[in-house]
Design a protein around this nucleic acid. Structure first.
Ligand SMILES: [Zn+2]
Ligand SMILES: [Zn+2]
Ligand SMILES: [Zn+2]
Ligand SMILES: [Zn+2]
Lengths: 137, 137
DNA sequence: CTGATTTCGACAATCATTCTCAACTGTGCC
DNA sequence: GGCACAGTTGAGAATGATTGTCGAAATCAG
């Protein structure tokens, strides 16, 4: 059956996405697409969705689901190390944080209830200093 | 400040939703709607959406955003006390947990980065014993 | 270069959720 | 009870994010 999923080809579009993502903010696929277009790219929306998803699978980008339900992406700072974020709800700017005590705690709780295949989501959101100053609170 | 938002009227539909919600599982608005219909109700989908949202605002029901982006609801066990869940991804069954150390930790991190108006999401998901046994893992 | 395969991108399709609006119904008041 | 009337309802349309389709274009092994 699965003899190693073939590595994605390095196309112009994939390169463009990787370059565009070289920032510190979480944005939606649509927002990244607009930015790419505004910089002269002719990349298609579906391609941006596909690219971001595949990059997220590889751990190259972080993906989080906002309260609205839309998925936000940004380039991952920490390689494939496990981590979480403190993100600005107004501009998307985020810092990576780690929650050392929590990882063990999660598994303890799960075991107590005999739940298997545990996953967890921890997201802190707020309004960053710049956005607070700009009244985007 | 609060010029008292008028309390929602107690209609047949609102009563039906409240009754249907008397379980322990997280389900989507559509799923609750189907269940109500299958029990003979003629309630409309939009009404279920509206009802669940308003109940969530009042703290009567818990709402969480699943990885897929859809919102899941269930009746809240803990009144309006702050809490989090360990939820089964296969059947929705959940237990409420609390994460005492975390609440303070979140604020400490936020302050360190000067982020204001902090909010947090913590969700544990897994597969419950029943679903594991049934091979829904 | 050549052919097998993958990826593109415009556009249609899906799916959850929200909106519109005419009909209906709690609620307060007589 | 009966009335007035603002809050609710429900069918269906509309929205908005995401995914699927499919012929054209690009990548890569030989
Ligand atoms: Zn900001
Ligand atoms: Zn973690
Ligand atoms: Zn289960
Ligand atoms: Zn908490």
């Amino acid at each position: 059956m699965n003899a190693t999923t073939p590595a994605p080809r390095m196309t112009r579009q994939r390169r463009e996405i990787l370059e565009a993502l070289d920032t510190r903010d979480f944005r939606s696929a649509q927002a990244w697409h607009e930015r790419l277009r505004s910089e002269g790219s002719t990349i298609g929306l579906a391609t941006v969705y596909r690219g971001l998803q595949s990059l997220a699978d590889q751990g190259e980008v972080d993906a989080v689901v906002a309260e609205s339900g839309e998925t936000l992406y940004r380039r991952c700072e920490a390689g494939d190390e496990h981590h979480h974020h403190l993100r600005c709800r107004a501009c998307g700017k985020a810092v990576e944080i780690d929650v050392p005590e929590f990882e063990a705690f999660a598994h303890r709780i799960a075991e107590q209830h005999s739940y298997g295949d545990i996953r967890h989501t921890i997201e802190l959101t707020g309004v960053c200093p710049e956005c607070t100053a700009a009244g985007k609170g």
